[in-house]
Amino acid sequence: MEAGLLAIGKGLAYGLAAIGPGIGIGIVAGKAVEAMARQPEMAGRLQTTMFIGVAFTEALALLGFVLTFLLG
């Protein structure tokens, strides 16, 4: 019983933590593509900025991923 609840909790911890960053990374990448299409000559710098933005957004999902292991 307890092991089953723990497994459900682990799944929920990571699953819920992934929702926000998933949407966030989608917005970051989408906007970056939009900006690159408007100004292709800025593509290099936009890409760098996009990766930094993605890395910061991703951090929240990663905390959830680690929590999954900590729960076990």
Binding site: A59, L62, L63, F65
Partner: peptide
Amino acid sequence: LTLAVRLFA
């Protein structure tokens, strides 16, 4: 923390 965890995860 995120620097370490990101690479590992």
